[in-house]
């Protein structure tokens, strides 16, 4: 059985819980006391990931760290449809990879702001917020133009990809870092669409989609 070293309040861990639930993949969560226990910096955990970061996934003897890397692995291995990560489409893989890197940028800005506010991390909060707004503006424009072409997702195609899963958690949790999404209507409509993907689950701080809305509302609002 797949083992996920997991912390409930981590958006990076949530990416993997989310994709595994959407793919219908069973896994065992191994809780790590990230806060206040700092167990991700403990000797036993550093042997698993010398970077001292969550999440880590273990499957069939493969040990992987880094949420984006693990999304690639899970989709390539457990999604026979190839929709989430089309391994035989080089252009699309390149496109997805650039958004996976973009997701890392969201982590180092929006997620850092959230850690500062909630768990007292010593970061430059103004720089974190400014950085997040810069990325959100880019993502909002990208999604707005996508909607004009009748596209729902970050990368072209009828089906969401792991780029959507990688970017979603720290966007939807951004208000905990004091980063409002008020000025990003296309991002807000995209978040609503992500919440309506079959198999979507929440984490603490994320609420399910309301009963109405979705693509129809998105179109009329756009």
């Amino acid at each position: 059985m797949i083992k996920l070293y997991d912390y409930e309040l981590s958006g990076n861990c949530y990416k993997l819980r989310l994709l595994m639930n959407m793919l219908g993949v069973d896994y065992e969560a191994v809780p790590v006391d990230f806060y206040p226990g700092r167990e991700h910096k403990s000797d036993w955990f550093l042997k698993i990931n010398p970077l001292g970061q969550l999440p880590v996934l273990v499957d069939d003897g493969v040990v992987l760290r880094d949420a984006q890397a693990i999304l690639v692995y899970l989709a390539a291995k457990y999604d026979p449809s190839g929709n989430w990560y089309p391994v035989d489409d080089p252009a699309k893989l390149g496109d997805i990879s650039q958004w996976l890197a973009f997701a890392d940028g969201i982590t180092s800005t929006a997620s850092a702001a959230r850690l500062h506010e909630g768990l007292f991390y010593d970061f430059d909060i103004d720089a974190c917020r400014a950085g997040a707004h810069r990325l959100f503006r880019i993502l909002d424009e990208h999604l707005w133009f996508a909607e004009k072409q009748d596209r729902d997702w970050i990368c072209p195609g009828a089906h969401p990809t792991i780029a959507d899963i990688a970017c979603f958690p720290y966007v939807i949790l951004s208000e905990e870092g004091g980063i409002s999404r008020q000025d990003y209507p296309a991002i807000r409509r995209w978040c609503d669409r992500v919440k309506r993907i079959q198999g979507f689950i929440v984490m603490s701080g994320v609420f399910p989609a309301g009963p109405a809305g979705g693509r129809l509302n998105a179109l009329s609002a756009a």
């Binding site: 912390y7 409930e8 809780p31 905990e176």
Partner: peptide, 11 residues
């Protein structure tokens, strides 16, 4: 984890 899950929902 249980208590933080609850509190994280309230936040």
């Amino acid at each position: 984890r249980f208590q933080q899950t609850i509190f994280g929902q309230d936040k």
